[in-house]
Amino acid sequence: MNYPLLPKQMPDRIKSVWKKSNIVTTGIFLIIGVLATALLNWFEVLEGVWLWTIGIYFSVILVWFIIAMILIPYRYQYHRYEITPEDLSFQEGYIFRTITHVPINRIQHIETEQGPFLRKEKLMEMVIHTAASSHHISGLDIEEAVNLRQQIIELVKVAKEDV
């Protein structure tokens, strides 16, 4: 049996967004690491346990970066969503896989977000808020996001229920 994949997929421009944000995040962690190393060197304690800690820190970041980069196509394959009249489902993750279902009539409000990388690729992130939880769907086409939002609002109007 194959893992169930939801029908709708994001535009594949999301992959370059992931790549960029991966690079930036790693960069930030590297800078923190370099600063820490400089600080330790300043205090002249860069030896023994500290040297080991720094070494492990950098290797963890690098390994993490490489794995994340390799996994991007897989991650893309498993990054999907679906809307039915009853609920909104979305899935993510290749190694750790999650599918979340939110009933339309539980949705309290919807937000759209757009960071610099997403904006460059003309993509959007949608945040679905229920009374208890909030869920992110990232990498929708702007047009699609607007449509989706409209569609959800129409469905919410029909299914009127309260907390």
Binding site: I95, F96, I99, P103
Partner: peptide, 16 residues
Amino acid sequence: RQKIQAFSEETSKWLF
């Protein structure tokens, strides 16, 4: 049921 706000199912590549 009507008070449940969301449902999620999780697994992993090796648990699946």
